[in-house]
């Protein structure tokens, strides 16, 4: 049995989530807590992570590789591409609505998956992690809203 709490920490940079936007404000100890609840999945190029319309059961963080966000009915042209450090699937956890787009891996991709129950548990029972994640989510949604507002007039003009 390893007594990890007696070990010296491996440092913030040693964690696979340390370079991700969602967890950028967390310290080493908090990252260790989040990683204790997370799973890792590998995807092949072109493999579907989830489809639009599915129930959202988890939040995904891209650890390595690249994924495409594909809106329903938009053909194969992606709405956006997400690279290492970015995250997706948060909307399904926040409002309980079905997935709004399909996610497809573009190259060999490793994702860290935080299941809904664990996400909810962290948000309810760990004040520091909850406030850091909430702040990052708010920033993320703000950026997305700003981007949409910038795109809308351009579309109307064209």
């Amino acid at each position: 049995m390893k007594w990890h709490w007696l070990e010296r920490g491996k440092g913030r940079a040693g964690h696979r989530l340390s370079g991700t936007a969602l967890f950028s404000d967390l310290g080493e100890r908090e990252l260790r807590v989040v990683e204790a609840f997370a799973h890792e999945r590998q995807f092949l190029p072109d493999e579907v992570v989830f489809d639009a319309g599915e129930d959202g059961q988890a939040l995904y963080v891209v650890v390595s590789g690249r994924v495409a966000v594909i809106a329903e009915g938009a053909g194969d042209r992606p709405l956006a591409e997400l690279v290492a450090g970015e995250f997706f699937g948060e909307m399904g956890l926040l409002d309980g609505a079905p997935r709004s787009a399909q996610i497809r891996a573009l190259e060999p991709t490793t994702l860290v998956v935080l299941p809904r129950t664990e996400f909810d548990r962290l948000m309810v029972s760990h004040a520091r992690i909850a406030s850091c994640i909430s702040l990052q989510l708010a920033r993320h949604l703000g950026r997305r809203l700003r981007a949409m507002l910038e795109i809308a007039p351009a579309r109307e003009a064209s």
Binding site: M1, R29, A36, R121, H126
Partner: peptide, 15 residues
């Protein structure tokens, strides 16, 4: 779970 949330590992918390 309380111990895990304080950063203790699974094994140590269970022990």
């Amino acid at each position: 779970l309380r111990l895990l949330l304080r950063g203790v590992s699974h094994d140590a918390a269970a022990a």
